[in-house]
Simulated assay, not measured.
Amino acid sequence: MNHDHTPEADGSAADGSRRTFVKQAGGLLGLALAPPLTGFAERFAAPAKTLAGPTDLTLRVNGTARTLRAEPRVTLLDALRENLDLTGSKKGCDHGQCGACTVLVDGRRVNACLTLAVMAQGKEITTVEGLAQGDHLHPMQEAFIKHDGFQCGYCTPGQIVSAVACVKEGHATSDDQCREWMSGNLCRCGAYPNILAAVREVAQKGGAQG
């Protein structure tokens, strides 16, 4: 009886398969343990280029270019208050939740406590100090005084700056809309009805210029 597959032949084939597997596995392991290509390694080993230490910054604030020296990590709020003596913007929560630090950057409301000063270079920054024209108050400032839109006054600068932008954005056409778009500015004294009255009056008169 003719047997095409003998035990010896099967054993040899099995040994050959095992040897082939071991060789392939060894090759893969060697490839995995081999050092990476030089360029790849150097790319990851190269030190990152970062700014460190104080550097010169130029901020255009209320229409005037102001130069200061500060570290890249300094916030816009601290740069305004500590370096440029513009203390109208207040530091409330320092987490972007209360709105006391609100300023305008290129006409848009931002929380200065969450914005790095270096990010505001080349942009137009407006603080509460820049709203009045000399002794002539901005219509929003006048409205806040008329409607007694403050008590302790700590949040007032941020409220006024935010209100100016709110009206210019067209987001003060109704009481509910105004409340929604001013909700990022908190008044811990609870002067909201008076603030709302001031903002709505300016919106109705179309006097949010500046």
Rank of each mutant, 00 (worst) to 15 (best):
M1P: 13
N2V: 14
D4L: 14
P7W: 10
E8L: 05
D10C: 00
G11Q: 13
G11I: 10
S12T: 04
S12L: 15
G16W: 09
G16E: 06
S17G: 09
R18K: 13
R18Y: 10
F21Y: 14
G27N: 08
G27L: 14
L28V: 14
L29K: 00
G30I: 11
A34Q: 03
L37V: 13
T38V: 15
F44H: 12
A45R: 01
A48F: 00
T50D: 00
L51W: 09
L51H: 10
G53Y: 06
G53F: 07
P54K: 04
T58N: 05
R60M: 06
V61N: 01
N62P: 03
A65I: 02
T67E: 14
T67K: 13
R69N: 13
E71W: 06
T75Y: 05
L77D: 03
L80Q: 04
L80G: 02
L80F: 03
L80E: 08
R81C: 06
L84K: 00
L84R: 01
K90W: 12
D94E: 13
C98R: 00
V103F: 12
L104R: 05
V105P: 11
G107C: 08
G107T: 01
R108E: 15
R109H: 00
V110P: 08
N111T: 07
A117R: 03
G122K: 04
A132T: 05
A132F: 13
H138F: 11
M140C: 07
F144A: 01
K146H: 15
H147S: 07
H147P: 06
D148G: 10
G149D: 10
Q151Y: 09
C152S: 04
C152I: 03
G153R: 08
G153D: 09
C155A: 06
A163D: 09
A165S: 09
A165G: 04
K168S: 14
H171N: 15
R179E: 13
E180P: 01
S183M: 11
G184M: 06
G184C: 05
N185E: 07
C187V: 01
C189K: 03
G190Q: 08
A191M: 11
Y192A: 01
P193F: 09
N194P: 01
I195W: 10
E201F: 04
E201T: 00
V202K: 07
Q204Y: 05
G206F: 12
G207I: 02
A208K: 01
Q209S: 14
Q209I: 05
